[in-house]
Design a protein around this nucleic acid. Sequence first.
DNA 1: TTCAATTACTACTTAAAGGTAGAATTTAAA
DNA 2: TTTAAATTCTACCTTTAAGTAGTAATTGAA
Lengths: 158, 158
Amino acid sequence: MVELIFIFKEWLYNFVKEGVLMQLYNTSQYAIRVLNFIANHSDNRLYSAKELSEVLNIPYKFLTKIMGILVKTGFISSIQGREGGYELNKPASEIKLIDILNTFNDDTDNESCILGIGICDSLNKCALHDQWMEPKSLMRKMFEETTLNNLTCKDCKL
Amino acid sequence: MVELIFIFKEWLYNFVKEGVLMQLYNTSQYAIRVLNFIANHSDNRLYSAKELSEVLNIPYKFLTKIMGILVKTGFISSIQGREGGYELNKPASEIKLIDILNTFNDDTDNESCILGIGICDSLNKCALHDQWMEPKSLMRKMFEETTLNNLTCKDCKL
DNA sequence: TTCAATTACTACTTAAAGGTAGAATTTAAA
DNA sequence: TTTAAATTCTACCTTTAAGTAGTAATTGAA
Ligand code: SF4
Ligand code: SF4
């Protein structure tokens, strides 16, 4: 019941309006959460799409689509059939956030940027360039240096 | 009960809108560039949609749609008819980037964030929270503190 | 007055992300 | 062997940002 009340509170908030600023694709968010969940429960067992969908509250059918991509791109391997599921294909310390984002075309290249005016370099900059460089580089640093084993966090939302 | 909660979560899901990508909407980019162009050429004349479209390389028909919004939201005023055009409605120093973004639903509230998991506060955080706070706050600071008169930049791309 | 340049309005189309449906395939437990 | 639980595959639907089209209304200049 407590959980229901919390969910309802959440619904009220989101129903009114959920705006976003500089946000990742849903797909990228889901992928990070899935991979991180598996990484931080790595007790050598398989995780089924059904379990992941319920625990992480990601639509089942959309999740299975994402899992297929994660398998093909080598982040995870899958065991088919009854009692099957997914497991990490490499150590959590080798999975960088930037790799996950690139998989889902969350643009991380330097060519297109905050004002999106063609190719950018120090000689060819837009009016926001100087202000944007510091936040941008910190953000890139985070995505490039954070691996799944940096995200071990008890009691964090899943 | 667990089943009921899961069903409720699935149902709730339909009402939750989630994010875009780690960049601004095209519309926001265009709006910033248009307003900044007018602001940094403020020699008391009007700028027509045709001129703005050509100089800034923004599709004419899309631009006029955006201009209509900027007029209604009070950023600019328009003079109709032959020799008409647009001009800033208030000093460049009073137009913050964050206000432009909010106009086009590049929303900036703190509730939804990088992993997009419901309501966020210090007690209820996601696995990326600690890493994300610094880049995020710098980014917000930039949008909140930068006004159009901070963007006067010779030879910058338009 | 006429006309051309302009904004304003309504409606439509396109592209891409987000999400769903259903059935085939695999596999281990019963 | 049968069956249920699981992945995989193809195709489709929905939503929203992005962009286009056409026309009415406005207005100063010729
Ligand atoms: S901030 Fe710099 S790199 Fe980004 S769009 Fe502007 S000029 Fe290009
Ligand atoms: S980084 Fe913090 S504020 Fe952002 S989604 Fe995660 S918990 Fe919420």
